[in-house]
Amino acid sequence: MAAEPVVHVIDDDDSAREALAFLIDCAGMQVRSYSSAVQFLDSVPHMEHGCIVTDVRMPEMSGVELVDRLKALKIPDPVIVVTGHADVPMAIQAMKAGVSDFLEKPFSDDAILNAIRSALARRSGREEADAEREAIKTRMATLSQREKEVLDGLVEGHANKVIAFDLNISARTVEVYRANVMTKMNAGSLSELVRMVTTARLTG
C-alpha cells in the first residue's frame, strides 16, 4: 500500500506558514513545514512524497529558484506557488518552469485546499500510469526475439500473412507466436495489445 502523501509547506513568514500547515492538518492531510527553500532541500533525500506549497519571495532562494532546483533533482512532486500581488510576474515565470498552480494572496481556505487536492490527484494518477507502464514493460521483457518481431508487426497493423512474409516464416507459425504474445502480455484482444505497447513506449 502506498504511503500517505505529504504536503510540504515552505514559507519564511512564521505565522503564514503555521496557519497554512494547521489548515492542511485540519483538512485531514499529512503536512510538514519549512522556514526556507534551503531547509526543505536539506530534507529532500529523506522526504515523503506528495506535493509542495511554497511562497515565491523568500530570502536565500526564491520559489522559482526552488522549482528549478527540484527539476534538476528530478523530484516529481507537483509544486504550488503562493504569491503576493507584486510577485505575479515571478509566479508566471514559475508556471512556465512547470509548477502545478499558483495562488495570489489573499486566497480562501477552499482555494488552497482545492489546489492541493488537485495536485495530489494528478500525482496519484501519474504514479498509477507509471506503475502500469513498468508492468507492461516487464511482460514485454519475457517475449522471445521472434515474439517481439511478431508483436512489432501486429502493432503496425500488419496481417498475419504480411508478418509471415516479412519474417520469412509461415502464416501458421505467426499464429503460434501471436497466441504466445497475447498470453504473455495478458491481452484479451489485439486492440488491448496495441494500447499496452503504446503505453509502454510513452516517456515521462
Rank of each mutant, 00 (worst) to 15 (best):
H8D: 04
R201G: 13
H8W: 00
A19D: 03
I80F: 09
V82S: 03
F165H: 15
E60D: 15
S62C: 08
D152I: 08
I163N: 07
E128L: 14
Q30M: 10
A21T: 06
F22N: 09
D87I: 05
M90D: 11
S35I: 07
V176F: 11
V79Y: 06
F107L: 03
V31Y: 00
L73Q: 12
V56Q: 12
A119V: 03
T183G: 07
D42I: 07
N168R: 14
S62E: 02
G98H: 06
Q30C: 09
Q39N: 12
V155P: 03
L190W: 05
G157K: 12
I92V: 15
A141Q: 11
V197H: 01
V64S: 11
P45S: 13
T198S: 07
A121W: 06
S108Y: 05
R201H: 14
Y34G: 00
V53I: 14
V88P: 01
S118E: 13
T183I: 08
T54Q: 07
D87R: 01
S33K: 08
G63D: 08
A27P: 06
S15H: 12
E134W: 03
M182L: 15
S144T: 15
L120R: 07
A37M: 00
E128P: 06
L73N: 07
L143Y: 04
R123Y: 11
D14R: 10
C51V: 10
S15R: 13
L154D: 09
N114W: 11
E60C: 09
L190T: 13
V197I: 10
P5Q: 04
M196I: 01
K96C: 02
S33A: 15
M61W: 08
R122K: 14
G125I: 00
A135L: 05
Y34I: 02
S15K: 11
Q30Y: 09
V56L: 15
G50E: 12
I169K: 08
R195A: 05
E104I: 15
M1Q: 12
K184W: 03
T198M: 03
K148L: 05
R139Y: 04
P89N: 03
A27W: 05
E192C: 05
L23Q: 01
Q39G: 09
N160Q: 14
G188K: 02
K74M: 13
S43G: 07
S100A: 14
A121C: 00
